[in-house]
């Protein structure tokens, strides 16, 4: 049975069609290879990049923005959010500084996306 989905990799939002093909899927409608990777991942183990904020002491604002450096399993989103709420960074912080290393054993770091 074929499945349709909208690619969320970039704002182009390609309309994807997946057809079962052996153990995996044949993807059509994608304008780039990342779309194919996304579609198959979405069927097997959906992942998302998480963007949020953490508290910072001594910055020009009380929080700074952060992101997971790569997509992490979707079901861990709220656990990662819980970890982030416990963080208090100390200024100065540079873009790219690690906020939480290997968050929830995903092998992915949470990094700052803003200076403080």
């Amino acid at each position: 049975m074929s499945k349709e989905m909208t690619c969320i990799v970039c704002p182009l939002g390609c309309h994807l069609t997946l057809e079962p093909e052996g153990e995996s899927f044949a993807v059509s409608g994608n304008k780039c290879q990342r779309g194919k990777k996304y579609a198959i991942e979405e069927m097997i183990a959906p992942k998302r990049v998480i963007t949020s904020t953490v508290a910072v002491d001594g910055g020009s604002y009380p929080v700074i923005s952060v992101k997971t450096q790569a997509a992490v399993p979707k079901e861990l989103i709220f656990e990662v959010m819980e970890d982030l709420s416990a963080v208090m960074m100390k200024a100065p912080v540079q873009v790219g500084d690690v906020v939480i290393a290997n968050v929830r054993d995903t092998g992915v770091d949470v990094i700052a996306t803003r200076n403080a």
């Binding site: 990799v9 970039c10 963007t51 923005s65 992101k67 873009v95």
Partner: peptide, 25 residues
């Protein structure tokens, strides 16, 4: 952009996916 902390910026301009603050920086 400084308050647009989600990602998806810069795919055309920088060929990578940035958050708003990263793009403006």
């Amino acid at each position: 952009l400084n308050q647009c902390i989600h990602n998806g910026f810069g795919l055309h301009r920088f060929k990578e996916e940035l958050t708003g603050p990263e793009y403006s920086l």
